[in-house]
Design a protein around this nucleic acid. Structure first.
Lengths: 276, 276
DNA sequence: CCAATAGTGTCTGTGAGACAGTATAAG
DNA sequence: CTTATACTGTCTCACAGACACTATTGG
């Protein structure tokens, strides 16, 4: 039973902040970018792929496994958004990166040390902006995945090491296409990070279709062929040229620059057309 | 510097769970439903409106103000989803309610007592399912709101009391239509709940267009006129009959029942057609 | 000339917006 | 007969899918 107070001030003065049990919070950030595989055929375009930044854990728990960049919330001084930005800057050394909150994961045993709830974020970046080298324990992994009604199989590859995991989908409810995701196989990723990656992939794919989010992953100047490749690699399907050009027509501006040297017709370079 | 351990078990045995500062978490639930205003003209349909369930606070902080149903996370025993379900059942006395996570709010001073991070949920319900009376301090408020590029003005009305608040929108970033929402005016709602309501409204509006979410707010049998009214009241605009019927044609099944007594042509009753 | 990408023209079918029209109960 | 809603037919326009075609470079 609450005691009687005469004012909010009086109540707050007497409040015991340990009335409710407490826990720690972290943020995990899934940083997406686009990689370019070099081609040996001088004519062909380099194949693109979607990449995610992972960090190798030096310490327990999950020592020697990979995880998303993340860290604990500074309870006294920062919001979750600020914590995420701090970690993002720490990892990339650049500012002005697109970031958005994804989902808050709260499984009781997701951290073996103690109860930790984690709010995940998704960030998009053009890799070319990274002037500094990555810290030695961080690495870009190319993502490929297949999905059907029951499973998502994901393969992450940094050229050196291959990480695979499988997510099982079970229909949660009839009126939307929401699934409950559970980790069905995973050896190399720490915590519940397979779930975070899948949730980020799904958000990215959706937002690609109804926002201009993709331009956060593009350099200032790009060809429509490159942009189309990025769409294709994220959506996991090929697009027809005329249809694609119609879709992005009012999102880009043609510049006077062209890109030559490809052993074929040069392509015009475009910029993102900012909305009014 | 982390000490040297030889195994995960050894590390965990020696782990100090108070290494990182802790905080409390809550969940707040925005429960939407549809209300029916009675009409005095025997021919006319009762006007529908979107409603939200609010609770009057008996205790400090924010004593005597209204807030969304919510509560603290039981750190030892439940996930956030479970906490939200628990509170939802507590408030409504029914199970099988549609619920989804919305967003995690973490402003440092959102709770005057101490640092509290809150994960918000949105639930949709058909009010007619509520057999029990609401607890005496809970009440349904009809929502009406207007929105332009800079502000959202919301009016909540339970027939007795009127709550208004204003949200200021500032563009966060160019590539998507994401805004930063800040509370510009609010006297009667506790915490940052105006932000939660606006975030729920926006989610509901969006999902209406690409999911079958609306049927969680409908009774088992309904007329297309009623369904259309619900769409109109959520979207805040009128729809043309033929267009609307095309959109929902493959989401509903016509039954043999009809609804008469309206002083006009009887309308067929429909059910939600569950997907295969 | 060849291979590969850049870029365009256009046909076709689908589907949304719009509006007009018919149907039918209760008073 | 009036009023209000229920429900349908159809025209038009915009746009996505599909495919064929032209353009241009480096080797």
């Amino acid at each position: 039973m609450q005691k009687e107070y005469n004012s909010e001030e009086e109540f707050l003065k007497n409040y015991n902040p340990d009335e409710f049990e407490k826990l720690s919070m972290t943020t995990d950030i899934i940083i997406f970018s686009v990689s370019n595989k070099e081609q040996n055929n001088y004519r062909k375009l380099g194949e693109k792929s979607l990449s995610v930044l992972l960090v190798k854990r030096n310490d327990y728990p999950f020592k020697d496994m990979w995880c998303l960049p993340g860290g604990f919330l500074d309870v006294k001084n920062e919001t979750l958004d600020e914590a995420a930005s701090r970690i993002l800057t720490l990892e990339t050394n650049i500012h002005d990166i697109y970031i958005e909150q994804l989902y808050t994961f709260s499984d009781i045993n997701r951290d073996p040390r103690m109860r930790v709830v984690s709010t995940s974020y998704m960030a998009l970046i053009d890799k070319n902006r990274l002037k500094d080298k990555l810290s030695c324990n961080a690495s870009w992994f190319d993502i490929s995945y297949t999905e059907d009604d029951n499973n998502i199989d994901v393969v992450l590859n940094n050229g050196n090491e291959i990480i695979t995991f499988k997510i099982k989908k079970t229909l949660k409810e009839l009126t939307t296409d929401r699934y409950k995701y559970t980790i069905a196989a995973n050896d190399k990723l720490a915590f519940d990070h397979p779930l975070v990656i899948v949730s980020g992939l799904s958000r990215l794919k959706n937002k690609l279709e109804y926002t201009d989010i993709v331009f956060n992953m593009m350099p200032e100047y790009f060809t429509l062929g490159e942009l189309q490749q990025v769409y294709e690699v994220i959506l996991g399907k090929e697009l027809l040229d005329p249809a694609f050009r119609r879709i992005i027509a009012n999102k880009v501006v043609k510049t006077s620059k062209v890109q030559t040297g490809g052993g074929h017709r040069p392509s015009a370079l475009f910029k993102y057309k900012k909305k009014i």
